[in-house]
Simulated assay, not measured.
Amino acid sequence: MNRALRAVVCSVAVGTLALGLSSCSEAVDQVDKAVNETYEVTYEVTGKNIDSIDFHGGGGKAMEPKVESVSKPELPWKKTVTLRGIMPAAVIPVATDPEGSQVTCKIIHKGKVLEEQSAEGLVTAGGCTAESPVTE
């Protein structure tokens, strides 16, 4: 009787483990697919007295995106980039003039504004950051 009970328990344990590994494998496949999927966003920056604009341009790794920069941009500024997987979209206008600076940034995906921010005065490290639409 003990031997039969052990066999049943072992069979259930092996079956559960196989099912768990199968589910885990499916989750890994979904993450791999999401990481390789691309999406396009358009960054828009308007205002005055903007010294530079930093943005995720699509290079680098999903969680360590390469930051590109434009010095003394002509405003309004607009740039469309292709990002990958879970990489967040981010645009950061920098203005160092404590008076007279105005800035609005937007991140747009498929015609929908994902993020929009506005500020006046000394603006550094504000900007817009949006979660990847691939994760939705």
Score class of each variant (00 low, 15 high):
residue 56 H to K: 00
residue 27 A to W: 09
residue 21 L to G: 13
residue 71 S to R: 08
residue 29 D to T: 04
residue 54 D to H: 03
residue 27 A to N: 02
residue 33 K to N: 14
residue 38 T to D: 13
residue 13 A to N: 09
residue 54 D to P: 00
residue 63 M to A: 10
residue 49 N to M: 06
residue 71 S to Y: 10
residue 30 Q to L: 11
residue 60 G to M: 11
residue 19 L to T: 14
residue 31 V to T: 03
residue 20 G to H: 13
residue 32 D to V: 08
residue 41 V to W: 12
residue 64 E to T: 05
residue 34 A to C: 09
residue 16 T to W: 15
residue 14 V to T: 15
residue 14 V to M: 13
residue 75 L to I: 11
residue 19 L to K: 13
residue 55 F to P: 03
residue 75 L to Y: 05
residue 41 V to R: 08
residue 77 W to A: 11
residue 52 S to K: 14
residue 16 T to I: 14
residue 46 T to H: 05
residue 20 G to D: 02
residue 33 K to C: 05
residue 13 A to D: 11
residue 57 G to T: 03
residue 31 V to S: 09
residue 17 L to V: 14
residue 30 Q to T: 08
residue 78 K to W: 03
residue 22 S to Q: 13
residue 17 L to F: 15
residue 41 V to K: 06
residue 76 P to Q: 10
residue 57 G to Q: 07
residue 54 D to S: 14
residue 38 T to S: 15
residue 60 G to W: 07
residue 62 A to L: 14
residue 72 K to N: 15
residue 73 P to Y: 07
residue 39 Y to E: 04
residue 52 S to F: 08
residue 43 Y to T: 01
residue 63 M to R: 08
residue 54 D to V: 04
residue 19 L to C: 05
residue 28 V to F: 02
residue 15 G to F: 13
residue 59 G to Q: 11
residue 54 D to A: 09
residue 27 A to C: 01
residue 68 E to T: 02
residue 48 K to G: 09
residue 30 Q to W: 07
residue 24 C to W: 13
residue 47 G to I: 04
residue 31 V to N: 01
residue 60 G to P: 07
residue 21 L to A: 04
residue 66 K to V: 01
residue 68 E to I: 03
residue 32 D to N: 15
residue 32 D to G: 05
residue 72 K to Y: 07
residue 72 K to W: 00
residue 63 M to C: 03
residue 20 G to P: 07
residue 66 K to G: 01
residue 68 E to W: 05
residue 47 G to C: 11
residue 40 E to I: 08
residue 52 S to Y: 12
residue 62 A to C: 10
residue 75 L to M: 04
residue 22 S to M: 11
residue 50 I to P: 00
residue 36 N to S: 12
residue 68 E to H: 08
residue 66 K to P: 00
residue 49 N to P: 00
residue 69 S to N: 09
residue 30 Q to I: 12
residue 28 V to E: 02
residue 36 N to P: 00
residue 59 G to H: 07
residue 25 S to T: 09
residue 54 D to L: 03
residue 65 P to L: 10
residue 70 V to D: 12
residue 73 P to K: 03
residue 40 E to G: 00
residue 17 L to A: 14
residue 57 G to D: 08
residue 59 G to S: 07
residue 19 L to W: 15
residue 45 V to W: 09
residue 28 V to A: 08
residue 61 K to Q: 12
residue 56 H to A: 03
residue 76 P to C: 12
residue 34 A to L: 02
residue 37 E to N: 07
residue 67 V to S: 01
residue 38 T to F: 06
residue 43 Y to L: 06
residue 37 E to Y: 02
residue 78 K to H: 01
residue 15 G to C: 12
residue 13 A to F: 15
residue 36 N to Y: 02
residue 50 I to W: 05
residue 71 S to I: 03
residue 25 S to G: 13
residue 78 K to E: 14
residue 44 E to K: 12
residue 25 S to L: 01
residue 23 S to D: 04
residue 60 G to Q: 10
residue 26 E to N: 06
residue 67 V to W: 15
residue 15 G to P: 10
residue 73 P to V: 02
residue 61 K to H: 02
residue 58 G to S: 11
residue 13 A to Q: 12
residue 62 A to R: 05
residue 66 K to L: 09
residue 68 E to G: 00
residue 54 D to G: 02
residue 35 V to K: 08
residue 63 M to T: 10
residue 47 G to M: 11
